[in-house]
């Protein structure tokens, strides 16, 4: 029973990992940008949520109403003001610039919030659980987190494949020059993609900040989880990313079950095993 419990917990947390990954994957898919600051942006939105929910005395989930627009606008401006200028045939400039951004975010957060771990308080929902037959019990919070994550991935999938905006994303990703020729402004499209990515980042950040404690240096490991989920699932496939997140979550929980110190290690091992046998991920979709 314990084992089944760990696996279920792993699946549920996998949804969160998939959220970490989805924004990353969207940005890479549309503009071939690897955003090294992605994890730090998740942590930044957790801190922003913390500040807003404590200062306005709001539930962390309600703070999303304020934090989402702030982060989305920040993403759009960041993309148009800086990141677009780094994009070209060379993949190094955007890597360096987002790496720099990562350091700036970490240090600013350290300056403002100190290195002390923080946590957001979501009230009873955090401890409430659902008892299932056979002695299993599932926390409401992880369950809600999972369901919303799946929903968000579904919405992203819908935007990408069923809307005019998604069509513009895919066209620009296929051929930037011809997309411009068709009247699509590349800079604007990329700005919108980053804004959407930041919406997902913010939701992930708030979920994370309620689930565990976080500190200014917590970003990079979230980036790694995101990367691993994307790569396990296969680039350019959001449902694959969800599966990737779940595989990562389940391996971590099984690892932790064997030995508490092995949690993170087990996730990396699962990642390496997938990479060794399926270098393009389990459900590879795009090339390049």
């Amino acid at each position: 029973m314990d084992w089944i419990n760990s696996i279920i917990q792993g699946i549920l947390v996998g949804g969160l990992y998939a959220l970490f990954a989805a924004g990353l994957s969207l940005i890479f898919g549309v503009m071939r940008l690897v955003n090294i600051a992605h994890g730090d942006l998740i942590i930044l939105s957790a801190f922003l949520g913390l500040t807003i929910s404590t200062s306005l005395n709001l539930h962390p989930f309600i703070s999303l109403i304020v934090v989402i627009p702030i982060m989305a606008i920040f993403g759009y401006v960041l993309q148009r003001g800086i990141l677009n200028k780094t994009l070209g045939n060379d993949i190094l400039p955007p890597l360096l610039v987002t790496f720099g951004l990562s350091i700036i975010i970490q240090n600013s957060l350290l300056e403002i919030y100190t290195a002390d771990p923080q946590k957001m308080n979501a009230g009873v929902i955090e401890v409430a659980s659902l008892s299932l037959p056979g002695g299993l019990s599932i926390g409401w919070y992880p369950l809600i987190m999972f369901v919303i994550s799946v929903l968000i991935i579904g919405i992203l999938q819908f935007i990408f494949y069923k809307t005019a905006l998604g069509r513009a994303f895919r066209a620009t990703s296929d051929d930037q020059e011809i997309a411009q020729l068709m009247g699509l402004s590349k800079n604007h499209i990329f700005g919108l993609a980053m804004a959407i990515s930041m919406v997902v980042v913010t939701i992930a950040g708030i979920f994370l900040g309620v689930r565990t404690s976080f500190d200014p240096a917590a970003g990079p490991s979230r980036l790694i989880f995101g990367f691993e989920a994307v790569i396990i699932g296969g680039l350019g496939n959001l449902w694959g990313t969800l599966i990737g997140g779940i595989i990562l979550g389940v391996s971590q929980n099984i690892g932790a079950k064997i030995n508490p110190g092995w949690q993170i290690l087990a996730g990396h091992i699962a990642f390496i095993i997938v990479l060794a046998f399926r270098p393009k991920g389990l459900f590879h979709r795009i090339d390049g």
Binding site: A164, R167, A168, R170, A171, S173, D174, D175, I178, A179, M182, L184, I286
Partner: peptide, 13 residues
């Protein structure tokens, strides 16, 4: 655009 359907290509125009 190779990853778009024929109709989606037209719609982009």
């Amino acid at each position: 655009f190779p990853s778009l359907s024929v109709e989606e290509n037209l719609l982009i125009g």
